[in-house]
Amino acid sequence: MGKLKLNIAVTGLNNTDNPGPGVPVIRGLRESNYFDVRIIGLAYENLEPGIYMKDIVDKVYQIPYPSSGTEAFLDRIKYIHSKENLNVIIPNFDAELYSFIKAEKELGDLGVKIFLPTLEQFEERSKSNLPKFGEKYGIKVPFSKAITSYADINNLRNHFDYPLLVKGKFYDAYLAYNPEQVINHFNKITAKWGVPVIIQEFIRGTEVNVIALGDGKGNTIAAVPMRKQYITDKGKAWGGITIADENLVKLTKKLIADTRWRGGMELEIIKNVNNEYYLIEINPRIPAWVYLAVGAGQNIPEALVRLAIGENVPPYKSYDVGKMFIRYSYDMIGDISQFEKLSMTGEL
């Protein structure tokens, strides 16, 4: 039986020291037993490493940042669709999710499928709404408060003990030991992501993560817990190992059942000394370490694409414990002519 041929567009080719999930997602898709994929990379910046990886992408298009407006963004996606006849898009960049969720129906009508959380799910789990989210679904979350100005920083002492975490709306999290550091991080974050900035109680313990996929009907199709073994100075995992923590899997399944989560997700959880689990954050997309799940037996990118095209996907029942990922950096050789072609035509 021949494999199903699909044209799949993937964003997040920024496999840098703060990696996007695009390249590992594509590796999962390329290893699929169901599909024979043509991969169209969608890049925001002209030095995203994935652009230059020949075995990863078949073709690359530059797209405008969502901040330039949905219209310009969608026009570009439609143009690419007219050239490449896309079946599925897998968005991997937090700041673009809102625009894709809003455009899901419009793109669906053109035959391009996306499998993302609903706008309600997306907003409900946003960092500034986390306290309410925890209350609603009965999950412990660290105390947090959104702030919009310097004036709020002076009042933090009434609510928090230092150190505390200073987080951006989409990305970035810094530990601050005093108000001066908060101001410093506040400036850095607002310059990049705007307000509000989220101040979060710092919970001591072990950080564990779960990658999961919900089918939108309450079923957990895939769930693999991982413990980071090595963390870079940007707080990114540089090595991790799958673990057998049934409580974590149970918590994930309950959360997906209660929210009827649709699409990929990553739960960031801290387990404190009393073995209590605190939910720190829900990333509403596949995380960059997804290839570990593939290696442990749950091909989440493949399952997500099958859900997107409307197939019935049975849940994965197990994963291999003790599988590890170790990231490494690798220098490719490119040429100014590639850079020229991408910069001048927006395609490569």
């Binding site: 100014i336 850079f339 020229e340 910069s343 001048m344």
Partner: peptide, 16 residues
């Protein structure tokens, strides 16, 4: 180049 791309080999900067 014909498409208006210009490369400065001294600095490594590119222009359009």
């Amino acid at each position: 180049s014909d498409n208006g791309f210009m490369f400065d080999p001294n600095t490594g900067d590119s222009y359009n």
